[in-house]
Design a binder for these strands. Structure first.
Length: 865
RNA sequence: GCCGGGAUGGCGGAACUGGUAGACGCGCCGGACUCAAAAUCCGGUUCUGGCGACAGAGUGUGGGUUCGAUUCCCUCUCCCGGCACCA
C-alpha cells in the first residue's frame, strides 16, 4: 500500500474495476428485490455544475447503499436534450442545436463518468434521438384518438419586431429580450392535453404518496386547487342584450354564493366577448382593452400589477332581485381561468373591496361575522369581513349560516335554471404546442381538403431536420419546404406539415419508463417496465415540485388507461434536493438584453461589485439557482482535478442535508480532502505494523471497550442516517468522530490493533457509498480479497453497545446546574437522591421545598422548587 | 400578489419524538516539527463578567403554551423555490 493518497490513481483503478466487470449493468430478475433509483436527468447545457454533483451524488449514495443491502439496483442516466438553450447557443455561435447538444452530451458524460457514479450506461437515452421522440408522437396520436389531446386557442408572448413567439423567460419587464419591443399577447391555435380530466384522481392519490415530502404534496394539492362552489348566470339587462345582439347571461363561478346579495359589480377579462363588443362603441374602453392585451402572460406579473378597471356602461340583472349590476372590464380577471368573469362583492372579498374603493362602487354587507362584531364594512379591510357568518339583507335567504346559505341559494338557482353547484379546479389543461425548432415535431398534417390529419403510425417518427440554425425570427421549420411540404395521408393532395414542436415537459414525462424498456424498436414500453416500475427512489430539485412531477403523474395514468403500464404512480419515494445557489451579476445591454457574469469573475471594491477583467461595475441580482442562463454555475471539474471525485462527493454531501438549499462556497473543501487523507494514513499505519490479528473482543480494557462501543454506535447511526433520514452530513460527521477515536487507541498490542481495525473497516464500509473509490482501495489494503462493492452492509453488535454507567444532567427549574453518573437502568428513587445530592444543584435548591422532580430516563433530572 | 420552504457562533451546519444549544468540519489564535515554508500533529475558539470554580445572556423579530421551547402556537421581517413557454 502506498503511504501517500493519490486520488487520480485510486479513482482510475476503482473505475476500471467496475467498468471491466459491468458491475452496474442492471438485469431484470437478478439478485434480490428490485430497487429503481433515479435522479432527474440533466439538460445538456455544456458542463455539469454543483447542483448536478449534489443531485447525482445523493442518488449514487442511495443506489450503492441499496446494492450493499442486497437489492437489485437500476440507476440509469440520460439527457433532457430538447429545449431553448440550444437555440440560443445556435443564435450566438451559428452552430446547429443538434451539434451543440450532442457535443455537450459527450463532454458531460465524461464528467459524470469521472465522478464514479454507479450508472448503467447501456440504457442511456437522449430525448432528441428519433428512437426516443417517436414514442412521444405515437402516444400523442393515441391521446388524440381518445380525446385527451385536442386543439384550441391559447395566449402567447408575441414580439412584433422579431415576428416571433417568446418564452416567458425571454420577456423582461414586458419587453422582448433581443429587440426591446413591447410584447403583445396573441391568440393562436395550439394542442392541449386534458390533464383536468384527471384532476380529481391526481389530487386524491396524493394522500397515498407517503414516500413524498409533505411540502410537495401540499404544493400539488394547492396547484390542482379543487374548489366546490356555484356557477351563477346573471341574465343580461336590456343594454347588454342590445350590444350582444341576443339575450344571454353572464356566467361566473364563486365559492361564496352566500354573498350573492352583496354583488355590486361584475368584472370581466379584457378578452371577454362582452368586453370586445362594448369596446366597439367606446373608444376609451377600446384603448383599455388594447392596453390589457399588452404586457406579460405570467401570473406573477398579472397578480402584482396595479389593478385597473373601466366600466362598460352595460349591465346584468341580479338573479333574484333583478336589480341592475354594472359590468366592468378589469385587468386582473383572466380569460383562461373559469368563465373569464367574476362577481364583485366588495364587502366580503379583499380584492373586490380595493377595486370598489378605487372606483366608487357601492359596498353592501350581507354577512355578519360570527365572532368579530362590526357594524359596517369600512376601510381599512379587516380579516373578519371575509369570514363565514350569518347572512343578512339577503331576501328569503337572510338569517342562514353561510354554509347553509350557499346550499339554499344554489338549490334555488338550479330550480330557476340560473346556476348550479359545481366543482372548479385551478388546474388548467396542458398546452404543449411550442412555436420552436428544437423539439419533438407534433405529428400532424394540415390538408386544405381534409383538415388536420394525423401522421399514420407507419410514418413515424416525423424526423426533425438537424442542420437548421435558428436566427431568432420565428421557427426555422416553417421556412424549410423539405419539412413543411408533404402529401395528405388521406387524400394524397398537397398539404403542410405542422411546424410546432412539443413542450419539453412531454419528453421528461415518461423517460423513466423508457429506461426500463431501453432499445425496444417495436414498442414504447415492454414487460421490463412492469418489473422496474414504479421508481423506488426519485431524486431531483425542489424546483420541479409541481410541473414536471404532476405532468409525469398524469402521463403515467394516460399510459395506464391505454394498458401500456400497470402502475398509477410513477415515483414511490421522492427526495427533493435543495437548490445550490450562487450570486447573480449582470450588465444591461441593448434592448432588454442582459449579459450575466460568473461570481468567480466579480469582486467587491469599495462596497460595489465590479468585473475583475475591466474594473467596471456590474449589477448584483441576489442569489439564485446555478444555471446557464444566469451564468452563475460552478464547474466541478477543477475540484475533481485538484482533489479527486471522492473529495468532491464527500464535500458536497457534508455541506448540508440534501433537502436544504445551499449557498455555494468551496471553503471547507480542504477539510474533506484532509479527512480522506487521514483515513488513508490511519489504514496505512495500521497495516504497516504487521499482520492484522484475529480479535478476541471478550478481554478488552476500558479504552478498547469504549472504542468498540463507538464503532457499533457509529455503524447504527450511519445506517439510519443514510437509509432512513438521508442526512449524509451527519453520517459523515459520525464517521469522522469514529476516525478521531480510532487513531487515538494504543495499537502496540494485538487487542488494540484488532479494535482499531474493526473501527476502520466500519468507516470504510459505511462511507463507501459516498467515497467509493478510496474505500475500494482501502478495503483491499485491509486484507480483503473480495471487492468492496460485493460486500454486504454490516450489522452492529448489540453486545458492544452495552454500558454500565450513564451520565445525567441535573437541572433546577429547567436550568442546567450539574451532572451525575449513575448505573445504567438505576431506579428513579436512586436517580432522584443522586440529583438532590449534587453539590452545585444543592446551592440552587437552597433548602427550598422541592415541588416536583422530573426524570427523563438516560437524559436528565429536573428539580422544580 | 398567491402557494411552499428557510433563518442557530466569524462560516457550513448538529441537536431525529418538547429534555445538556453549538456535534462534525472550515476559518482563526497559540504551540510542536522545520534553516524556512507547505504538509502534519497537539491545545483553544458563542458572547459578557471572573485568575478560576462559576454566573448571566443567547437559536431572525415580538408575544404565547410548558417544570423545560432551536423544536409547538400566533405576529412581523428578510431570504430561497414555484406561479403553467427556463428546465
Amino acid at each position: 500500500m502506498d503511504e501517500r493518497y493519490d486520488p487520480a490513481r485510486v479513482e482510475r483503478a476503482a473505475q476500471d474495476y467496475w467498468d471491466s466487470r459491468q458491475v452496474f449493468a442492471a438485469r431484470e430478475g437478478a439478485r434480490g428485490e428490485k430497487y429503481y433509483c433515479l435522479s432527474m436527468f440533466p439538460y445538456p447545457s455544456g458542463r455539469l455544475h454543483m447542483g448536478h454533483v449534489r443531485n447525482y451524488t445523493i442518488g449514487d449514495v442511495l443506489a450503492r447503499f441499496m446494492h450493499m443491502r442486497g437489492r437489485n439496483v437500476l440507476q440509469p442516466m440520460g439527457w433532457d436534450a430538447f429545449g431553448l438553450p440550444a437555440e440560443n447557443a445556435a443564435m450566438a455561435n451559428g452552430v446547429p442545436p443538434a451539434q451543440w447538444t450532442r457535443e455537450n452530451i459527450a463532454y458531460m458524460k465524461r464528467q459524470l463518468r469521472s465522478l464514479g457514479f454507479a450508472i448503467d450506461w447501456e440504457r442511456e437515452i437522449a430525448t432528441c434521438d428519433p428512437d426516443y421522440y417517436r414514442w412521444n408522437q405515437w402516444l400523442f396520436l393515441r391521446m388524440l384518438e381518445k380525446g385527451i389531446a385536442y386543439k384550441k386557442t391559447g395566449v402567447v408572448n408575441w414580439d412584433p419586431v422579431d415576428q416571433t413567439v417568446l418564452a416567458n423567460e425571454q420577456v423582461i419587464d414586458g419587453r422582448g429580450w433581443r429587440t426591446g419591443a413591447l410584447i403583445e399577447k396573441r391568440e393562436i391555435p395550439m394542442y392541449y392535453l386534458r390533464i383536468t380530466a384527471y384532476a380529481d384522481e391526481l389530487l386524491g392519490a396524493l394522500d397515498g404518496l407517503e414516500g413524498w415530502p409533505d411540502r410537495v404534496r401540499t404544493m400539488q394539492a394547492n396547484w390542482i386547487g379543487k374548489s366546490v362552489g356555484c356557477e351563477i348566470a346573471f341574465p343580461y339587462a336590456d343594454d347588454t342584450n342590445e350590444v350582444m345582439g341576443a339575450a344571454g347571461a353572464l356566467k361566473v363561478f364563486t365559492t361564496r354564493a352566500d354573498t350573492l346579495f352583496g354583488a355590486t359589480f361584475m368584472a370581466i377579462a379584457a378578452e371577454h366577448p362582452i368586453a370586445l363588443a362594448a369596446a366597439q362603441r367606446d373608444a376609451k374602453l377600446a384603448a383599455f382593452v388594447d392596453e390589457c392585451r399588452r404586457g406579460s402572460t405570467m401570473e406573477a406579473d398579472v397578480a402584482t400589477q396595479e389593478k385597473k378597471g373601466l366600466p362598460t356602461g352595460l349591465h346584468v340583472r341580479h338573479p333574484f332581485t333583478g336589480a341592475p349590476i354594472e359590468i366592468w372590464v378589469a385587468n386582473y380577471v383572466l380569460m383562461g381561468y373559469g368563465e373569464g368573469a367574476v362577481m364583485g362583492v366588495p364587502a366580503h372579498d379583499e380584492r373586490d373591496f380595493e377595486f370598489a374603493g378605487r372606483h366608487g362602487i357601492a359596498i353592501v354587507g350581507v354577512v355578519k361575522s360570527r365572532r368579530g362584531a362590526y357594524d359596517q364594512v369600512v376601510a381599512p379591510w379587516i380579516h373578519a369581513y371575509g369570514e363565514y357568518g350569518i347572512t343578512v339583507d339577503s331576501g328569503e335567504f337572510s338569517g342562514l349560516e353561510s354554509e347553509a346559505a350557499v346550499d339554499a341559494i344554489a338549490a334555488k338557482l338550479e330550480e330557476r335554471g340560473l346556476g348550479a353547484k359545481r366543482v372548479q379546479f385551478r388546474l388548467r389543461d396542458w398546452g404543449i404546442s411550442r412555436q420552436r425548432y428544437w423539439g419533438c415535431p407534433i405529428p400532424l398534417i394540415h390538408c386544405p381538403a381534409c383538415g388536420d390529419v394525423p401522421v399514420p403510425d407507419a410514418d413515424l417518427p416525423v424526423r426533425l431536420p438537424e442542420h437548421l440554425v435558428p436566427d431568432g425570427s420565428g421557427n426555422p421549420l416553417a421556412k424549410t419546404p423539405e419539412f413543411v411540404d408533404c402529401a395528405c395521408p388521406k387524400c394524397g393532395g398537397a398539404a403542410r406539415r405542422e411546424t410546432d414542436t412539443m413542450d419539453t415537459f412531454v419528453d421528461s414525462s415518461w423517460y423513466f419508463l423508457r429506461f426500463a424498456s431501453a432499445g425496444n424498436d417495436h414498442a414504447m414500453v415492454d414487460g421490463r417496465a412492469d418489473y422496474w416500475l414504479p421508481v423506488d427512489q426519485y431524486i431531483g430539485g425542489i424546483e420541479h415540485a409541481i410541473l414536471h412531477l404532476l405532468y409525469s403523474r398524469f402521463w403515467t395514468r394516460v399510459m395506464r388507461d391505454l394498458e401500456l403500464v400497470k402502475i398509477d404512480e410513477p415515483f414511490a419515494r421522492l427526495l427533493t434536493q435543495g437548490m445550490v445557489l450562487n450570486h447573480i451579476y449582470y450588465r444591461q445591454e441593448g434592448g432588454a438584453r442582459r449579459s450575466y457574469f460568473n461570481p468567480a469573475d466579480v469582486e467587491q471594491r469599495d462596497g460595489r461589485s465590479v468585473l475583475i477583467l475591466d474594473g467596471e461595475p456590474v449589477v448584483h441580482d441576489g442569489l439564485g439557482t446555478m444555471s446557464k442562463s444566469k451564468g452563475n454555475g460552478v464547474d466541478p471539474q477543477k475540484l475533481v482535478e485538484e482533489f479527486g471525485a471522492d473529495t468532491a462527493r464527500l464535500f458536497m454531501m457534508f455541506a448540508a442535508p440534501p433537502e436544504q438549499s445551499l449557498e455555494w462556497s468551496d471553503e471547507g473543501v480542504h477539510g474533506a480532502f484532509r479527512f480522506i487523507r487521514r483515513l488513508w494514513k490511519a489504514v496505512h499505519d495500521l497495516v504497516s505494523q504487521g499482520p492484522l490479528p484475529v480479535a478476541d473482543f471478550a478481554t478488552l480494557d476500558a479504552p478498547q471497550r469504549a472504542l468498540r462501543r463507538l464503532t457499533h454506535q457509529t455503524l447504527a447511526k450511519v445506517t439510519d442516517d443514510i437509509g432512513r433520514r438521508h442526512t449524509f452530513n451527519t453520517a459523515i460527521a459520525a464517521a469522522m468522530e469514529l476516525l478521531n477515536g480510532a487513531v487515538r487507541i494504543d495499537t502496540s498490542e494485538a487487542a488494540g490493533r484488532a479494535v482499531a481495525r474493526e473501527a476502520l473497516e466500519v468507516i470504510v464500509l459505511t462511507l463507501s457509498p459516498i467515497i467509493p473509490h478510496v474505500t475500494h482501495a482501502l478495503w483491499h489494503a485491509l486484507g480483503h480479497e473480495r471487492a468492496l462493492i460485493e460486500e454486504p452492509w454490516p450489522q452492529p453488535d448489540p453486545a458492544a453497545l452495552e454500558r454500565e454507567l450513564v451520565e445525567l444532567v441535573v437541572q433546577v427549574n429547567g436550568k442546567l446546574r450539574g451532572r451525575i453518573t449513575v448505573a445504567a437502568g438505576a431506579p428513579d428513587d436512586v436517580v432522584r437522591a443522586a440529583a438532590l445530592a449534587e453539590d452545585n444543584a444543592r446551592k440552587f435548591i437552597n433548602d427550598a421545598p422541592v415541588r416536583k422532580v422530573i426524570i427523563v430516563p438516560g437524559k436528565l433530572v429536573n428539580v422544580v422548587v
